[in-house]
């Protein structure tokens, strides 16, 4: 990593999404499911997702890589007014690791 990214106090250029950790080789399962027919295209899921996993053009669409990128906050589920999104946490022992929480 470039010296400026980690030293000198300026972290505005650091790619934060690279600083997350996952259990290797464990299957998280399909822990986010959604029903596009219920989506009213409000875009709230996309706005609150800290990992930028939702795109809303006509209807909400979840990144196919969500199992490896999701930070498991469940904000998309909590914010959806039409109950279009279901969230149930990854399988036990899989998913994100909080190293220094």
């Amino acid at each position: 990593m470039d010296q400026r990214d980690t030293k000198g106090g300026d972290f505005t250029g650091t790619s934060l999404l690279k600083l997350t950790f996952k259990v290797e080789g464990a299957d998280p399962g399909e822990f986010i499911t959604y029903d596009q027919s219920k989506c009213n295209s409000c875009g709230a899921c996309s706005l609150v997702c800290s990992a930028n996993l939702w795109a809303v053009k006509d209807k909400a669409k979840l990144s196919p890589r969500y199992q490896e990128l999701c930070l498991e906050c469940a904000a998309c589920y909590a914010v959806c007014e039409n109950d279009a999104i279901a969230f149930r946490y990854p399988n036990g022992g899989a998913g994100i690791i909080i190293k220094h929480g």
């Binding site: 980690t6 106090g9 300026d10 505005t12 600083l19 800290s50 190293k99």
Partner: peptide, 25 residues
Amino acid sequence: ILKIPAFQAMCRSVDAELREYQVHL
């Protein structure tokens, strides 16, 4: 917050390195 000069100065003063990003409800 990361772009506030006083925050950056504080980071320099303690040799800070960014190592993890998390989100919680």
